[in-house]
Amino acid sequence: MAIANYLYLSAILFTIGAVGVVIRRNAIVVFMCIELMLNAANLAFVTFARINGNLQGQVVAFFTMVVAACEVVVGLAIIVTIYRSRRSISVDDASLLKR
């Protein structure tokens, strides 16, 4: 099996996550799709580390995880705030930016 298969998997998972971000309306599911994209990228990083024979890819993946954790915390807080004022977590309901 070629190591590149991990990269294919990563690409496919990333694409699935991207589609999910666009077509799902539940803000939490959208968020989870973003997490999926981040994880797909992490897989690619880990694979690159292996191909390169050093740990820098893994370090980047580590930082990605930390940043993702931060993002989840803030993002979910935003979702809770929106839910509190609108009683809805559909991203389409928070479409007042245009006015």
Partner: peptide, 15 residues
């Protein structure tokens, strides 16, 4: 960043 995010979440979620 992590600490800031934690603080931010608290501020956002506070009502």
């Amino acid at each position: 960043l992590l600490i800031t995010a934690a603080l931010g979440a608290m501020v956002l979620a506070h009502s």
